[in-house]
């Protein structure tokens, strides 16, 4: 199990350019040509509906597949000043959903303040909660209450309904803590019918393979978690592992890189390409720069217009119809049933 981030280890793979170079040099089957063959000349935004904010790379876990290269040794977090700029820019727009991610977004000292301010603007808040943060330190034990008070939608990773696969990917003891945290959320009403408190789980494969049917996996997860632990939840989102950052390191080290890239490319699905999340989402990094998606953010591929690439220059009219920057990693969102932060798209 890894205990340090790529950046801490000074790995070449912590450099975005190096990752892009590895991805670009693998195959001459390039993503843009696949788009064109599907009748998509340029990938463009339909309208920004989801405003994703990365509150920092700091995390209490060091998952093997993490595309953010997050971990306890990462100190980059969003300042309150950047949050204030976001709130100012979001005010009065038609954007109704904020998706807060990290790292562990709750570790940002201004997390609770930011959530409350977003709610005051009438914005629905989703938090990508890794579950174990709730039990990592007594100061986070009240998170279920805080989430409930602010009607926050909780979206949590749980790669499998058994300990072995979960702990191999996310760290020793993660499954047990996750189960306890889910039970705490259930006690507050999360995931239960009629409460309106949404608890969604995220499944991603524990290795170099694609996720299967979202509906079928959701059925299995619901049955197993309910029977063994009394846990209930609303929906399961299946997400494909993106071949960047620490998952790229795993693929290369395990000899699966070529196999996995071929699998992604061979599984290109034009229907998924038409509905990728970047067509209705933008992603803001911890330092305020704007990206077409969370993955472009990690590869440091900002939105194309340099004059409007930072939150201080926020221009919704531009973002609503912008051309999206694509690369070979985009095959990760178009393979099979497709993949997004909200699960399958085709």
């Amino acid at each position: 199990m890894l205990v340090k981030s790529l950046k801490f280890r000074d790995s070449l793979l912590s450099v975005a350019e190096e990752q892009v170079s590895i991805l670009s040099n693998y195959s001459d089957r390039d993503f843009s040509s696949y788009l064109k063959n599907s009748g998509i000349e340029k990938l463009t935004s339909r309208k920004v509906e989801i405003f994703q904010v990365n509150l920092g790379k700091m995390c209490n876990q060091t998952c093997r597949h993490c595309h953010v290269d997050a971990g306890p040794d990462r100190k980059e977090i969003m300042t309150r000043q950047t949050m204030e700029t976001i709130l100012e820019k979001l005010s009065g727009t038609g954007i109704r959903t904020a998706d807060l991610t990290g790292g562990a977004p709750e570790m940002n000292p201004d997390f609770k303040w930011f959530v409350k301010e977003l709610r005051l603007l009438g914005i629905h808040v989703m938090v990508r909660c890794n579950l174990t943060i709730i039990l990592a330190n007594p100061k986070y034990n009240d998170l279920p209450d805080f989430f409930k008070e602010n009607n926050v939608e909780v979206v949590s990773s749980l790669p499998y309904y058994q300990k072995s696969n979960t702990d191999r990917q996310r760290g020793e003891g993660v499954f047990e803590s996750s189960v306890k945290a889910l039970q705490m959320l259930n006690q507050k009403g999360y995931g239960r019918d009629g409460t309106g408190l949404l608890l969604n789980l995220v499944y991603n494969p524990s290795g170099a393979f694609l996720p299967g049917s979202q509906a079928s996996l959701e059925r299995d997860f619901k049955k197993e978690l309910s029977e063994k632990y009394g846990i209930v939840f609303n929906s399961l989102f299946t997400i494909t592992n993106m071949p960047i950052s620490r998952f790229l390191e795993y693929l290369i080290d395990s000899g699966n890189y070529e196999y996995y890239m071929d699998k992604l490319i061979d599984s290109f699905n034009a229907s998924a390409a038409k509905n990728v999340m970047c067509t209705n989402t933008i992603s803001v990094g911890w330092d305020g720069y704007i990206y077409d998606c969370d993955f472009n953010q990690m590869l440091e591929m900002k939105v194309m217009d340099e004059s409007r690439e930072h939150i201080r220059d926020f221009d919704l009219e531009y973002l609503d119809s912008r051309e999206i920057a694509v690369g070979q990693h985009c095959f990760g969102c178009t393979a099979g049933s497709g993949s997004s932060c909200g699960g399958a798209v085709a």
């Binding site: 072995s164 696969n165 499944y203 494969p205 393979f209 996720p211 049917s213 079928s216 996996l217 299995d220």
Partner: peptide
């Protein structure tokens, strides 16, 4: 083996 993993089968 691959298909079973994708379908969510456990080891």
């Amino acid at each position: 083996s691959h298909d079973a993993l994708e379908k969510g089968c456990s080891e």
